[in-house]
């Protein structure tokens, strides 16, 4: 669903835009507000739709180019809709030497997507991430806020299956 169709529909998306306005009012005039605002907007919409960026630029009195520049610079911000769950394979050094590449390969194979892509059913987005700081449990992957450690490729399908239900 695009943001504009979201705005037109009656399924509660209006509420999101109302909430966005509240966030913008809260941060108006606060120095360095752009990144915190983008964080909250992404939490609200799941990603940063174009018209949301326009609204942020207007309200924080910044050129749209700057809002877009910042949104596209940081890997945490997404300009495309994402799946319900983000599967992130940690590619930190400890995970890498303990077999993260094989883990990633298994997930690609199971979900039939490449890094950065979303499954057709909109359930999973696959990502690689920099160290999540759970090196003692390497190799590690996170799904949403859940962390799974000491993994082997064989354990992957069963873990993904839990999120399908």
């Amino acid at each position: 669903m695009t943001a504009s169709s979201c705005r037109a529909s009656a399924h509660g998306c209006d509420g999101k835009y109302r909430k966005l306005e509240e966030i913008l009012q809260e941060y108006k005039g606060v120095p360095g507000a752009l990144i915190p605002v983008l964080h909250q907007a992404q939490l609200l919409f799941g990603y940063l739709p174009h018209d949301v960026q326009v609204r942020i630029a207007e309200e924080l009195d910044l050129p749209l180019s700057e809002v877009y520049g910042v949104s596209s610079f940081y890997s945490f911000f997404s300009l495309k809709p994402r799946g319900k769950y983000t599967v992130s394979v940690c590619m930190g050094t400890a995970c890498y030497v303990k077999g993260a590449p094989a883990l990633l390969e298994k997930i690609r194979e199971t979900l039939q997507i490449e890094d950065g892509e979303t499954t057709e059913d909109g359930l999973f987005t696959l990502d690689t991430t920099r160290c999540v700081g759970a090196c003692g449990l390497a190799p590690v992957l996170t799904i949403g806020d859940d962390v799974y450690g000491r993994l082997t490729p064989e354990k992957v399908p069963e873990i993904l299956e839990r999120y399908r239900q």
Partner: peptide
């Protein structure tokens, strides 16, 4: 902003 992969003392 503890970015070095393999370091997690700051986090802890």
């Amino acid at each position: 902003d503890e970015g070095d992969p393999g370091a997690f003392m700051d986090r802890s």
